[in-house]
């Protein structure tokens, strides 16, 4: 997962992750192993700060 620089670490992605893989620190996000590509985290981000690696390769 690419966490863009404008991420504000609000933690909404972590709250909806069905596998609880996202860890929110004061100024960083950590994605743990085991992602099943549901993309819920990308969709809920209030500022669209998350991006999948393959999406950015395509564009």
């Amino acid at each position: 997962m690419i966490v863009n620089e404008w991420c504000m670490y609000c933690g909404e992605c972590a709250a909806v992750c069905p596998r609880s893989l996202i860890e929110v620190r004061e100024n960083s996000l950590i994605f743990n192993e085991g992602c099943k590509e549901c993309r819920i985290c990308l969709k809920v981000c209030p500022v669209q700060a998350l991006e999948k690696e393959e999406d950015s390769e395509l564009s």
Partner: peptide, 23 residues
């Protein structure tokens, strides 16, 4: 907070469905 990891560690179901989460 809403992203509660502590609750999950303790075994409670704290994950919020997107339809229940105001962004």
């Amino acid at each position: 907070g809403p992203e509660s990891r502590v609750g999950r560690w303790a075994g409670l179901k704290t994950t919020i469905k997107p339809k229940n989460m105001e962004s």
